[in-house]
Design a protein around this nucleic acid. Structure first.
Length: 424
RNA sequence: GGAGAGAUGUCCGAGUGGUCGAAGGAGCUUGACUCGAAAUCAAGUGUGCUCCGCGAGGGGUACCUAGGGUUCGAAUCCCUAUCUCUCCGCCA
């Protein structure tokens, strides 16, 4: 949720950020400012009325016990009138607060000051690791190459378009990648593994920003539960409405979950292959930090995600997303793009973001500094570490040989129990 | 799914219509004692909104799971939801 105070105190800065983001509903900023003022006025009036009522109420017990009949009658009438006044304010207060909430929920996070200008094409390359592998034959795309083990037709039969079935060693590879990634993050990089529900309620979806604005992207059940589109949702919500201790920060969690996305609005995009599925597996990294640590922790998190690709020997680059390409709740985002030789292009395999206090404000995730009285909002961060399906694609395309077999990367051989995958 | 019990502050726990932001205890902070620690003693210790003040701070208001209701007045009475526990049923 956007910080109303920031709108009141630094409106120009907020407006500049929204323009940079190309936020269409920019009028919401003015609307919020107006609602905040109106809310203050109503609250002041309402509380003044309340104070009068409370004050007069204090006399009630004694008057009723030892007052004259006239005094009793007077106080009863007074209080009745005051009560009516107070009650008249209630719907007004509620209405303005609901209206303000709705507006603040519809405003995206403030961009980091150094966010690059522009849209998707303006992403800035930050670093590159490894080199494009050379082939003495024309490399194939993963779906072509893994034919026989990769089975979108049966996925469609079972569930519909954008669902797939994996067979044999390819299924094993997917499973093994999950374990491989979790092992590195938990054993070497200090993350605590969590296993969470895959269905969550409305409050949980709202805190991380999927609701109320993006309901059409989610799969929903009849019980008003939603299938998670990423583990970010349940994991970030672990500490919703909690006050953490400063010495416990940063907290670093990793979680494997399947992710479910309706991909509304992406019809016709990546319809072929295993790139864009309604259901896919992902290992997610999530951190809770002090505000002053979030930038440094984001860089560490990014490096933790990169480490997986390095171990797998997969060439990749890191890009900083430009303002208009960033997610609604994100302040700063880096994407990791892996090289896919079959497709001859880089594809996003991880997205690492700082949400500053935006999700924390929605979810009321706070911490208390040692010795301090007041609580402060945490910063939340997350990133894929990594998307499993796309990692599988990258391995298939990068480790293919002329005869159509796929070499298993060195680091995965102990897990796989074989050195080569031979599609049937 | 059926029957019953419950949800109070960081934690435990008292409180059945006004004087309750809420007894008591634990924890934590500060001070005293101590070479130091423990023990002991003393004081302090929730959150949000809002107003006043340069500030230290002060005033008001709300919050006893959540949302409604009764009442001049609700932690306390009523309704609904959620969650927890016990018994029965079902079940991987």
């Amino acid at each position: 949720m956007f910080d109303g105070r920031l709108i009141m105190e630094q409106k120009d800065r907020v407006l500049a950020s929204m323009h940079k983001r190309n936020f269409k509903d920019i009028h919401l900023i003015e609307a919020a400012a107006e609602l905040i003022e109106r809310r203050k006025r109503i609250i002041t009036e309402s509380e003044t009325a309340r104070a009068q009522q409370n004050k007069r109420s204090k006399d009630m017990p004694q008057v009723m016990k030892s007052g004259t009949p006239e005094e009793k009658k007077a106080i009863q009438e007074d209080l009745k009138a005051l009560a009516e006044q107070v009650k008249a304010f209630q719907p007004r207060v509620k209405a303005v607060e609901e209206e303000l909430d709705a507006v603040l929920l519809a405003i995206p996070n403030l961009l980091a000051d150094d966010a690059p200008e522009g849209g998707e094409e303006n992403a800035v390359e930050v670093s590159v690791w490894g080199e494009k592998p050379q082939f003495d034959f024309t490399p194939k795309e993963h779906d072509d190459l893994a034919k026989g083990l990769f089975d979108p037709e049966r996925g469609a039969k079972l569930a519909g378009a954008r669902f797939s079935v994996l067979w044999g060693k390819l299924a094993t590879l997917e499973r093994v990648l999950i374990q491989f990634m979790l092992d590195i993050q938990t054993r070497e990089r200090g993350y605590t593994e969590v296993l969470t529900p895959l269905l969550v309620n409305r409050a949980t979806m709202t805190a991380t920003g999927q609701l109320p604005k993006f309901e059409e992207d989610l799969f929903k059940t009849n019980d008003d539960l939603f299938l998670i589109p990423t583990a970010e949702v349940p994991v970030t919500n672990l500490h919703r409405d909690e006050i953490l201790r400063e010495e416990d920060l940063p907290r670093s969690y990793c979680a494997y979950t399947p992710c479910f996305r309706r991909e509304a609005g992406s019809y016709g995009k990546d319809t072929k292959g295993y790139i864009r599925q309604h259901q896919f597996n992902k290992v997610e990294l999530v951190k809770f930090t002090r505000p002053e640590d979030s930038d440094a922790e984001l860089m560490k998190l990014l490096r933790d995600a990169e480490e997986i690709l390095r171990r797998l020997g997969l060439h990749y680059r890191v890009v900083r997303l430009a303002a208009q390409d960033q997610g609604f709740s994100s302040s700063k985002t880096f994407d990791i793009e892996v090289w896919l030789p079959g497709q001859g292009r880089y594809r996003e395999i991880s997205s690492c973001s700082s949400f500053t206090d935006y999700q924390a404000r929605r979810g009321n995730i706070r911490f208390k500094r040692a010795g301090a009285k007041a609580t402060e909002l945490c910063h939340t961060l997350n990133g894929s570490g990594l998307a499993i399906g796309r990692t599988l694609i990258a391995i298939v395309e990068n480790y293919q040989r002329a005869d159509g077999t796929i070499v298993v990367p060195e680091a995965l051989r102990p897990y796989m129990g074989c050195e080569v995958i031979t599609p049937a």
